[in-house]
Design a binder for these strands. Structure first.
Lengths: 167, 167
DNA sequence: CCCCTCTGCTTGAAAGTTAAACAACGTAGG
DNA sequence: CCTACGTTGTTTAACTTTCAAGCAGAGGGG
């Protein structure tokens, strides 16, 4: 049997600790801030807003469920519930996929596009004010590179990877 | 009456869009990843683990509820629920504050400390593997600076700020 | 064609979070 | 004192997310 190696783990250094805490604090606060802003101004959480945005940028304002889950980095289950709620609001409707009878499209309705148009300016302003306006161009660039690396690291190309939208 | 200015909002540039999407993707994936890791290895979500960590670093392994909420950047309501759950697990217990009869301390139990000890190595490893090991020292430094700025920007010192732990 | 497996998506229950209201205590001013 | 108001923490209900099945259609041998 495999005995656990029981080596002393590589704890975070003091500097790393500080970085990590700042990261947790910033993301928690930012998430909270944007969720609140959108709940107030658009009547939905940030994630749901993001789904509408993705749909709005798509050729016929529609996308297959799994693909939408992949873009949003969430599970299909979560997406199912979210779309159900957005459907109840009249902002999204479902359509069957002609080529695969199991498939569903989520389609952004006119009402959905309208809600987006209403909320977008306030939302961009909030994002700018909380993030971009506080950073130098170099920091913005650096942030982009870092986040790109982390995001890619967490969605490896290999088969069998534990990706939310495949759970 | 104030007429809305209705100026064209400053939309995100293409570069900013890319940065912002990467940020959302990375944080969403990382959150999911660590939540899963801790749910599997410690039987609790990341946030709850963080509460135990904070308590463990405190003089007598205890902290007032509001102060704990402030450190964790969450609402007192959320904390109340979280502590109730951790209490049910036997990892935290509540104690009355002698000097203020409204006050409560959350106290880390021995069992709580033990669960932390068990889970900590795996958790550090996960954080390293997903974040620190992928970044150069310069990037780590930059990330720290950026996150510090964002976090501070979202918790202004002025009275009347909408901070989660004061809601 | 049949069987088996895989894929796409949904469902219902449990767990976690939010928002609003509340009880109880502290505190400052009259 | 005593009143008014702020603070501390909890509670309820509504909402969101997760987890574990589950169902129906696609796909690939035999």
């Amino acid at each position: 049997m495999n005995r656990a190696p029981a080596e002393e783990p590589r704890w975070l250094t003091d500097e790393e600790q500080v970085v990590w805490r700042s990261f947790l604090d910033a993301t928690r606060l930012l998430d909270d801030h944007l969720d609140r802003q959108l709940q107030r101004d658009a009547g939905m959480p940030h994630l749901y807003y993001g789904l509408l945005v993705v749909l709005s940028e798509t050729p016929r304002r529609r996308m297959r469920m799994t693909e939408l889950a992949r873009q949003a980095k969430i599970t299909r289950s979560r997406l199912s519930h979210a779309i159900a709620r957005l459907e109840k609001n009249g902002w999204v409707r479902r359509e069957n996929c002609p080529s695969d009878k199991r498939g569903q499209f989520a389609v952004l309705t006119d009402a959905g596009l309208e809600v987006l148009r209403q909320a977008a300016p306030g939302h961009v302003a909030a994002v700018r004010q909380a993030l971009f306006d506080r950073l130098t161009p170099e920091q913005q660039k650096s942030l982009g590179e870092i986040m790109q690396i982390v995001a890619e690291g967490l969605q490896p190309k290999e088969a069998g990877a534990d990706l939310p939208w495949l759970r």
